[in-house]
């Protein structure tokens, strides 16, 4: 079973040289720690920064310089600031190559729910609806099952929808999946996880073709 850092590490393998990437809050943020050697990736923060750098040293902390998770950050040589309309302009226009975000539920047709639990949690969608409606490539980092052991990879989302038919790939603690016309296509298993277990924990349509390789974790 993968821990949060291993999920982030696996997603980082999807990055390609020259990519502009938007990382959501939570596990997606950790992807920045595992950018493969030898490639250059530019991180977009939707509050108005391209070229997000690491956390500042104590004496470099600037309250006017934060990321979309409200964390203090730094710039890098070549960074650029812009306003929120331009930020979502570049997202809407498809300039951002990859968006990684979390989800509460994903359906086997690519629908995603991640912004509201009626009666319980009403924090809002932030930029998630804009991102999922426009990103060319969306990878979801999520837990496969909830605390009660119920699948979060569903036939149909039960929570309010964030976007319809938008998710392309999912990495959970159990495996890696592509979202296809036939449902969740299992690509890799997490170490020590059987296809049987993944079948049992996936409520949506699952496609298993041939031998499924175990993920290489280094």
């Amino acid at each position: 079973m993968l821990d949060k850092n291993q999920i982030a590490k696996r997603i980082a393998k999807e990055l390609k040289d020259g990519y502009y990437v938007n990382l959501g809050i939570g596990i997606p943020t950790l992807v920045a720690n595992y950018i493969p050697e030898g490639i250059s990736v530019t991180l977009q923060s939707e509050n108005g920064l391209l070229g997000m750098g690491p956390f500042p040293k104590e004496n470099e902390v600037d309250p006017d310089l934060i990321n979309a998770g409200k964390q203090t950050i730094t710039t890098l040589p070549g960074s650029a600031f812009f306003d929120s309309a331009l930020s979502f302009g570049m997202i809407r226009a498809g300039k951002v190559n990859l968006t990684v975000l979390g989800a509460m539920e994903v359906a086997d047709n690519g629908d995603i729910a991640n912004w509201k639990i009626p009666g319980k949690m009403v924090k809002g969608m932030g930029g998630a609806m804009d991102l999922v409606a426009s990103a060319k490539n969306i990878i979801v980092a999520m837990q496969h099952v909830n605390k009660a052991g119920e699948s979060k990879l569903l036939k149909k989302c039960t929570l309010p929808i964030t976007g319809l038919g938008v998710v392309k790939k999912i990495v959970t603690e159990l495996g890696v999946f592509d979202v296809t016309d036939d449902g969740f296509k299992l690509l890799e298993r997490a170490p020590g996880i059987s296809v049987e277990e993944i079948k049992n924990k996936t409520e949506g349509r699952l496609v298993v073709e041939g031998e499924i390789p175990e993920m290489a974790i280094d």
């Binding site: 309309a85 930020s87 302009g89 997202i91 969608m125 932030g126 609806m129 804009d130």
Partner: peptide, 15 residues
């Protein structure tokens, strides 16, 4: 009363 709207929509409606 609260109206939640997508962040990009909010920004662009101001613009």
């Amino acid at each position: 009363e609260v109206e939640l709207i997508p962040q990009g929509t909010l920004a662009t409606r101001c613009m």
